[in-house]
Computed example of a mutant assay.
Amino acid sequence: MPCNADNERHWQVIAQGYDLEPGPINLENGYFGRMSREVLAHYQAHVAFINRSNSVHVRQRFEQGENVAIRKLLAQLLDAEPDAVAFTRCASDALQSLIRNYNRLQPGDQVLISDLEYDTVKGAMRWLARYRDVEVIELAHAHPASFESLLQTYRDAFTRYPRLKLMALTYVTHRTGLVMPVEAIATAAREHGVDIILDGAHALGQIEFNLARLGIAFAGFNLHKWIGAPLTLGFIYIAPERLADIDPDMGEFHYPATDVRARTPYSTPNIPALMTLPQVFEEHRALGGAAAKGARMNYLRNLWVSQVRALPGVEVLTSDDPRLYCAITAFKFVGRDQQLMAQRLLEDYNLFTTTRVGAAFGTCIRVTPGLLTSAADINVLVEAITELNTG
């Protein structure tokens, strides 16, 4: 198995670099990730330093060069050009900016979302209907999903709705962890003249990808999920040759129209968090990057899914096709109140999970291991699901 994915001792050593608050076993690591003890120390030191130096350092050093160097490091992480990325507070901010400033829509055009998109993205696309006089097409994906069924759903939509110009696509769906076949969908979309805005919030850090190879020109990402950065850090990606298709945000003038940074609101960012990113990126690479993290998360995911999928009262909602899953996987107790069952996981077995709603298949329980999750933790989950299924 690659990257020591099943080597508990290896990952136990890594876990020792993190502080963990006593409490339930956390299987809800999809909300945001932890900073390591070393990253946290750097962040706290930067907070203290900026608090002492205030604008003297920020105006003279950070704005004049440090932020440029950090942006270059971000671009290297993404295998992109520095002029393709700009920092935001989170993926949602980046995606909202891309949606509201996309300038190729005309009244009567159509835009596309599915039931698996993030609610903020759905809301932003529906906003276009009110303010750009476009029609929103909303799809519900067939369940259970397969690579071909997902792709065919979009192929059918491109044929059925010839006025489609723009679509949202979530790389890793936050409800179930389903990994969309982005490259295949992007190829089909391109054949029909449909642009994609990609939600990569959960992909960066656990999936290896190249945006140019995927055929993606517009995307938003988080740095506080699987990369291990402080909260309040994300970024926008716009392929340089497509920059003119996204207007400066609400007439933003602090940067020229030829600068991707004009596509985000100008404000005072979390400077200490940005200053911590070189340490974050170095640590991410030292751990083996997305290849190692993804392999470990997939191992832990498969460890519990393989033992509960066959239970008659349990439905695992995420495919076992290795192209279509990652750390996050959702399930439901058939015919039960999922919120109540999640509460029983917590109260009876000390397992913290979360429920997700909004998909066509209804409410589900989302399970997301993290870097500090052990195989022993997963065994507790398997025991809990098995016993609750019969109880």
Rank of each mutant, 00 (worst) to 15 (best):
W11H: 06
Q12W: 05
Q12E: 15
G17Y: 02
D19C: 06
L20N: 04
I25N: 07
E38S: 12
V39H: 04
A41Y: 07
H46N: 15
H46R: 13
R59D: 13
E63T: 03
E63P: 00
Q64V: 06
Q76D: 15
Q76C: 05
D79A: 15
R89Q: 10
A91H: 06
S92Q: 12
Y102E: 01
N103C: 10
R104G: 08
L105D: 02
Q106Y: 10
D109P: 01
E117C: 11
D119A: 12
R126Y: 14
R126E: 09
W127M: 11
A142H: 12
F147G: 02
R160Y: 01
R163V: 10
M167P: 02
L169I: 09
V172M: 09
M180D: 10
H192W: 05
I196E: 01
A201I: 09
H202G: 02
L204T: 01
E208V: 10
E208D: 12
N210R: 07
L211S: 00
A217H: 07
L231E: 15
T232H: 15
G234P: 09
R242G: 00
F253H: 12
D259S: 03
R263M: 08
H284C: 02
R285P: 00
A291M: 08
K293Q: 14
R301I: 11
Q307G: 05
D321N: 13
Y325W: 07
F331W: 07
R344Q: 14
L345I: 06
E347W: 03
L351P: 03
T373I: 06
A375Y: 00
N379L: 11
V380S: 06
V380M: 08
A384G: 04
